[in-house]
């Protein structure tokens, strides 16, 4: 389902953020941009609603790999009734946290492509969230001689860059690289599953 009414969606997100700044007492400022190709700095993700946060409490958002930022983004996506596969249509950022991360991914994609060309061997990245993996796949699109695949399950899933036509059956045995700082984002903390919610 596409976002049918940007205005209504933006108002719902504004109401959610207002709850946090008034009732919740978080000192945050926010700017919401809605519309096709909404104001993401590098435009790589092509999202439709972009929310930029700042203010004295913005550092809380980016702690622990952006845990709170991703939590707000997830709740906002659910409030405007996006299905899980549509979450990329909405993006939250604070103090350029994700923009910087996206740039890091782009730079590491270039370095990895260079290494794969030189060695002919596949290059494994650290485990990452689905959104970061997508950014990586997109970053590799400009290299015609390199392909990318995702390997592993759940929070351990990671991207592998390899030469075009590389035997895909060999990829499954690869290990992920050690997580880098800021890497993984929301992927790493899996513990709190549905079953913990007092089911009987």
């Amino acid at each position: 389902m596409p976002i049918e009414d940007y205005n209504a969606a933006a108002q719902k997100i504004a109401a959610l953020l207002k709850t946090l700044t008034t009732t919740g007492g978080l000192r945050l400022k926010y700017r919401i941009t809605a519309g096709a190709g909404a104001g993401e700095p590098d435009g790589l993700e092509g999202c439709e609603i972009y929310v930029e946060l700042g203010g004295p409490d913005a550092p809380l958002l980016t702690q622990r790999g952006g845990e709170l930022l991703h939590a707000l983004e997830h709740v906002a996506a659910k409030v405007i009734r996006l299905e899980n596969e549509e979450h990329d249509k909405i993006s939250f950022d604070a103090n350029n946290f994700k923009a910087i991360r996206a740039h890091e991914l782009k730079v590491s994609a270039e370095a990895a492509a260079e290494r794969v060309r030189r060695t002919g061997q596949p290059y494994s990245f650290a485990p990452m969230s689905s959104r970061e993996r997508r950014l990586l796949h997109l970053a590799f699109r400009s290299f015609e001689d390199i392909e990318t695949s995702s390997v592993g399950e759940g929070a351990r899933r990671f991207v592998v860059a390899h030469t075009k036509g590389y035997d895909a059956s060999k990829l499954a045995s690869l290990q992920a690289a050690a997580p880098s700082f800021g890497g993984g984002g929301r992927g790493g903390r899996g513990g709190d599953r549905r079953g913990s919610d007092r089911r009987r």
Partner: peptide, 21 residues
């Protein structure tokens, strides 16, 4: 609750940040 408890987990993260304050 959300798929794999993710919405509940997100609400708890928000609650955790606010309760710290």
């Amino acid at each position: 609750i959300g798929k794999q408890g993710r919405t509940a987990r997100s609400m708890r993260t928000i609650l955790g940040a606010v309760s710290m304050k």
